[in-house]
Amino acid sequence: MIRLLKSRLARFRRDESGSPTVEFVLVFPLYLGLMALSVELGMVTLRHTLLERGLDMAVREVRLGTGSAPSHDQIKVLVCENAVMISSCESNLRLEMRPADIRVFTALDATVDCTDRSEESKPVREFTPGQQNQLMVLRACLKYDPLFPEGILGSALTKDVSGQAAIVSTTAFVQEPT
């Protein structure tokens, strides 16, 4: 009986038929996590690029416009029209614009004012349309839902109470004279 048990244990120890399964079980979750991280990072990059493009195109129209100062809502519509693939852009985008003095430049506040689904709608933080030849600083904050909120990148993002993360883009321009 003991000899039979020893021979079966020795045969079991020499058998390598299950070793690829062990490697797969150990390595596959790592690859799956890296793939999810890559997809999430790609979507964040795409959203940020589209927001930058929309902001640049809107600023170009404002800068080369008729000289009339556009309103907050008009610029928001311009940004969202040019940032083509961002879902719910107008409800998740918040703009802040103020004039800046080129001789004594002060940056915008470090705290970015974004939309938040869990709070009541807030009025515009500061939106001062510029005049001719005036330097303007425009900041856009876009809130979005991460694809994998509990994934590697999704859990590392700073999110609000409703689970949305923010993308912030800032630009400066000089309003052209008419």
Rank of each mutant, 00 (worst) to 15 (best):
M1V: 09
R3A: 14
L5S: 07
L5M: 14
K6L: 15
S7T: 14
A10Y: 11
R11I: 03
F12G: 13
R13V: 13
D15P: 07
D15G: 07
S17G: 12
G18I: 11
P20I: 15
E23V: 05
V25M: 14
V25H: 05
L26H: 06
V27Q: 07
F28P: 02
P29C: 12
P29H: 07
P29R: 11
P29G: 09
P29V: 05
L30M: 15
L30A: 09
L32V: 08
L32E: 05
L32F: 14
L34I: 08
A36D: 01
A36I: 07
S38H: 04
S38G: 13
E40T: 03
E40S: 06
R47Q: 07
H48G: 10
H48I: 00
L50T: 10
L51N: 01
E52I: 02
E52Q: 12
G54T: 01
V59S: 10
V59N: 04
R60K: 13
E61R: 07
V62R: 06
V62M: 11
V62Y: 03
G65D: 06
T66W: 01
S68T: 14
S68P: 00
A69F: 04
P70E: 06
P70N: 09
S71Q: 10
H72P: 02
Q74M: 08
Q74H: 07
I75R: 00
I75A: 00
K76C: 01
K76Q: 04
V77F: 00
L78Q: 12
V79N: 02
V79I: 09
C80W: 00
E81W: 01
V84M: 12
V84F: 06
V84K: 14
I86P: 01
I86Q: 02
S87W: 04
S87Q: 13
S88A: 15
S91W: 00
N92W: 03
L95K: 05
E96H: 05
E96V: 11
R98T: 15
R98C: 03
A100K: 07
R103I: 13
V104F: 10
T106G: 10
C114H: 02
C114G: 02
R117M: 11
R117Y: 09
S118I: 06
P123S: 13
P123D: 11
P123A: 14
V124L: 05
F127W: 08
F127Y: 15
T128Q: 12
G130R: 00
Q131F: 11
Q132F: 14
N133K: 10
Q134P: 02
L135N: 04
L135I: 13
M136W: 01
M136G: 04
M136D: 02
A140P: 03
A140L: 07
C141F: 01
L142M: 10
Y144H: 06
D145L: 12
D145K: 12
D145G: 05
P146N: 10
L147T: 04
L147G: 02
P149G: 08
E150C: 04
A156W: 13
K159W: 05
V161D: 12
V161T: 07
V161N: 14
V161K: 15
G163Q: 02
Q164I: 00
Q164R: 15
A166R: 08
A166H: 01
I167C: 01
I167Q: 00
T171M: 13
A172T: 11
V174G: 05
Q175V: 09
Q175L: 13
P177A: 15
P177C: 05
